[in-house]
Nucleic acid binder design. Structure first.
Lengths: 241, 241
DNA sequence: CGTGAACTTGAGACTATTCAAAGAGTGTGG
DNA sequence: CCACACTCTTTGAATAGTCTCAAGTTCACG
């Protein structure tokens, strides 16, 4: 659970989360990409991504897959209660992920005793929800090139939340998955990435990206970071301004 | 506040909300379309739409307006706290709306005393959030024709929540606004509506629509209703199935 | 009945999808 | 180490979807 602890410590002074360790009921080492239904009798299970990458998705009426959000190391993959969801949701864990399975009821009991921990966890999930909201705006209104930029910034933010702020941003998603996330197709994603590269906006290596002038990009797109290790109080006041 | 009461009574047996009436600090009669910032010193104000129509929107980096959600009679327009928002939000009240302005702190005090009322209000807003989530999926992934269908079903759902289930669905939004809602342009909205009409999927009068075979449309799109006056317990169990 | 806002229509440009085929990368077993 | 199978990515060409600009038309309302 040390990756989760790292996330929370950047939000609030959480001493330790050893109490959460007692909530662990299982531990998976994911060999190949594996999708699990989030609400099929597993409603009282909480998935914490110890390492690796995951995303949640739903299948639309036409059979199209829509990816809603993604999770880096330390993230909780199904914090929102499944019965709250509008559509049957699934979580896909990418190959070579480490997943801790926690018992929801036990976690609730721990949080009831440790208000500070509860606040930090809640804050973490609220920020995630705000980031989704920011992205969704762009995905609905803007063309694929802009949507892709937002996705790259969001990925950077997610890895920053996990404490992995590097120059080369890992890309754990296939272009098919990127398409299902931004509402496009794998072919068009491929072409759009190619034009961004040609315009020297990004550079590519195998499975990783580098964004040239990421600060300027954020400014141009009015992109707001949610996990840049800013204390809670500052975030609140920044939002009020 | 009788329209709000009507909404809540369909969700749970709420006796009366006269206590909320004491929270009213102002009352507006909106002559012409009027936009107000939701978080500019008015953070402790709650807007209840006694009658009329409203929507909230934000301006994206390029100046494009994105409409996030809309509100029919009896709806609370800014339940989610403004400082939680990712972008400066605004609420636009359409002409001929009646708005009640409530004091948030007083409302909180009332809800602290009346747990049943608090639960009903919370349930109402949760359902709204789920409906937004369902719509957003479609808007990101599907072409304009499908997006428009979802919007019409959502509008129908919103008026049903207000207790106004009629055959002819009022359309309080201009085509420009519909475009800003589904991520399209007014011109394309005009053409898309025209094709739906030509295919006999909808009929039109001035400022109102009729959806032919709305049940079948819901089934085809796997559309889930959130305000069809189904009791809470049934909704929960339906979600679990 | 005039006025302004909302809606419609057309033409051309741009954006995105589909289908199909070829190319590149990864891991496995010989 | 190579060969193979597999998935992912790239590319091309045709088609479909959407945007922009601009000019009309309709409609609501004073």
């Amino acid at each position: 659970l040390h990756t989760l602890l790292g996330r929370l410590q950047s939000l609030a002074p959480v001493a330790d989360i050893s109490a959460l360790a007692n909530c662990i009921v299982d531990r998976w080492t994911v060999e190949r990409d594996q999708a699990v239904p989030s609400a099929r009798g597993l409603a009282n299970r909480l998935y914490v991504l110890e390492d690796g990458f995951a995303f949640d998705f739903a299948l639309l009426a036409g059979g199209k897959r829509h990816i809603f959000d993604f999770y880096g190391p330390g993230a909780i993959c199904n914090w929102t209660r499944p019965e709250r969801e509008d559509t049957p949701e699934h979580i896909l864990f990418k190959a070579r992920s480490e997943v801790l399975v926690l018992d929801r009821d036990r976690v609730s009991a721990v949080l009831a005793r440790d208000g500070r921990l509860a606040a930090a966890l809640h804050e973490h999930e609220v920020r995630r929800a705000m980031r989704v909201s920011q992205r969704v705006r762009a995905l609905i209104s803007l063309p694929a090139r802009e949507s892709l930029r937002i996705l790259l910034l969001d990925l950077d933010d997610e890895f920053a939340a996990a404490g992995e702020e590097r120059e080369w941003l890992p890309m754990p998603l296939t272009q098919e998955e990127i398409g299902d996330l931004i509402g496009s197709t794998s072919v068009h994603v491929s072409r759009t990435i190619a034009t961004l590269e040609k315009d020297r906006e990004i550079e590519r290596r195998t499975n990783s990206f580098r964004i040239n002038g990421i600060e300027g990009l954020r400014a141009r797109m009015s992109y707001r970071r949610f996990f840049d290790h800013m204390p809670m109080a500052d975030l609140r006041s920044a939002a009020m301004g």
